[in-house]
Every structure is written in structure tokens, then in C-alpha cells.
């Protein structure tokens, strides 16, 4: 009786998983031959390059700035930590389109910083700089909050023992904290990556050009229809999904162990 109940539960869970993955079946939908002629291929491949290259730059900035910020927050007392977390939640909770409009206004000719950047010749709309900056804004909160959780999971006593063995705080961070938090940090980075590379709402306002994959998908959908979208969609999934998925699965395996 107990076994059969378990099987019913298992079947229920399997049905749930199937429903969750069902949208992926659309990759095999009968929509006619996929369009991959020169008219579609050139901009599509260019958008892949733009997304991969500029999102990588954005993630390097996110890690370089976000990791020390996370390390600082992880050592804060509860009240101060809550304050920082509340701040980090704002870009996460802002509707993407609203973020894009605010970003354009703040960094465009209407904002103080925008005027200054413009004076130095840095264009913050429809430029690679605008693309990267938008992605940094979109991904930073996710990375830092995830990184704080990852650093929190390292037992403080291990860090204290390392210090008592003669290691300076910086060495403790690199030899103990970072290696022990690396999987959690990878998960945080993967969330930031997925969020940034897939960002449409903010990027379409701040950096319609150079077009990344989401914007190009939208353009192709509008201009040529579904058959022209599918090849780029497959590439989009292939370059964004596997690594974050693997990082999450490994992290789950470790936390379940």
C-alpha cells in the first residue's frame, strides 16, 4: 500500500516535470522549414557574437565589483546587512522596461552622469557601453545576493582557524573562503548570466544596437515570422542553458549529499 502510494506520488511528480518542460517541445513544432538564409543568418550570428562577448564583459565587471561587495555584506551585522540587501533588491524588482527607461534618462543627456559621460565621448544609448552597463545593472543584484548566501555557507570557524594558522584576511579569503564558496558563487554567476543574456525589456530601450540575441529574436519575429526565429532560438538556448544548468545541478548534488 505504501509502495503504491509512493508510485502515485512519483507519477504525479513526473507529470509535473513534463508540464514544466512541455514548452521545449515547441522546438519540434510543425511550422514549416526553418529560415536560415543570408538575410537571417548574418544578423543572427552577429547577435550571438554581441551577446556572448558583451555579456562576458558585463559578467567580469559583475564578479570584479560584486565579489568584494558580497564579502563585505557577509561580514556585516544583521541591521546593516538588511539595508544592503534592500538596496540590491531594487534593480532586481524594477520592471525591466522601467529600468531601461530610467537608465536611458539617467545616463542620457538629461542626467548629470549622462552629461558628463557625453562630454567625455561615452555614448550611453545604442552602444556597446550601454549594452554592457545595462547588463551589469540587471545582473549585479542577483550575483551579489547569491554570493552573500554562498559566502555565508562557509563555516566562520574554518576562517578563524585559518587566521590562527597565520594567514592574513586576504589569504584566508583566497585559500579558504573562495574555494569553499566556489560552487555557490558559480550558481550566483550563472543566475546573473542567464538574467543578463536573456534581458530584453531594458536592453531594447538602452541598446537596440548593437543587437543582442533577445532583440534580434524580436526583430526576426516581427520581420520574418517564426521559421526565421527558430535557428537563433536554438543557438540562444544552447549558449545560455547548459552551463548554468550544470552549476545548479552540481550545487544541488552537494547540498543533498
Amino acid at each position: 500500500m505504501i509502495v503504491s502510494r509512493r508510485w502515485v506520488a512519483r507519477l504525479g511528480a513526473a507529470a509535473f516535470a513534463l508540464a514544466l518542460l512541455y514548452p521545449l517541445s515547441a522546438l519540434f513544432a510543425h511550422i514549416g522549414a526553418w529560415q536560415w538564409d543570408a538575410q537571417v543568418r548574418g544578423p543572427a550570428l552577429s547577435s550571438v557574437r554581441v551577446s556572448m562577448l558583451l555579456t562576458t564583459v558585463a559578467m567580469l565587471i559583475v564578479v570584479a565589483i560584486g565579489t568584494p561587495v558580497a564579502a563585505y555584506i557577509a561580514h556585516c551585522k544583521a541591521e546593516e546587512r538588511l539595508l544592503w540587501q534592500a538596496v540590491l533588491l531594487i534593480p532586481i524588482l524594477l520592471p525591466p522596461l522601467a529600468l531601461g527607461i530610467l537608465f536611458t534618462l539617467a545616463f542620457g543627456p538629461y542626467g548629470g552622469v549622462g552629461r558628463l559621460l557625453n562630454h567625455w565621448g561615452v555614448a550611453m544609448t545604442n552602444s556597446a557601453t550601454a549594452f554592457v552597463a545595462t547588463q551589469v545593472y540587471v545582473g549585479m543584484g542577483y550575483f551579489v545576493l547569491g554570493a552573500v548566501a554562498a559566502l555565508d555557507a562557509v563555516p566562520p570557524m574554518l576562517q578563524k582557524h585559518a587566521a590562527l594558522l597565520g594567514l592574513t584576511p586576504l589569504k584566508v579569503f583566497f585559500r579558504v573562503t573562495l574555494p569553499l564558496a566556489r560552487l555557490g558563487l558559480a550558481v550566483a554567476l550563472s543566475i546573473a548570466w542567464v538574467r543578463a543574456v536573456g534581458e530584453f525589456g531594458a536592453v531594447v530601450v538602452t541598446a537596440y544596437y548593437p543587437s543582442g540575441m533577445p532583440v534580434q529574436l524580436w526583430v526576426d519575429l516581427q520581420s520574418f515570422g517564426l521559421p526565421a526565429v527558430m535557428p537563433l532560438l536554438v543557438i540562444f538556448l544552447a549558449v545560455t542553458l547548459p552551463l548554468p544548468w550544470l552549476a545548479h545541478v552540481l550545487a544541488q548534488r552537494r547540498s543533498n549529499a
Binding site: P155, M157, L158, K160, H161, A163, L164, L165, G166, L167, T168, P169, V172
Partner: peptide
């Protein structure tokens, strides 16, 4: 600072 203390510390948890 901890790293400047010439002290060995052994606890119940081997850490």
C-alpha cells in the same frame, strides 16, 4: 589580529 597571534587552538570540532 588572529594571524599575528602565536597560539595553537584545538577544539572539539577538528575544523
Amino acid at each position: 589580529s588572529l594571524y599575528q597571534r602565536p597560539v595553537g587552538y584545538l577544539t572539539q570540532e577538528p575544523s
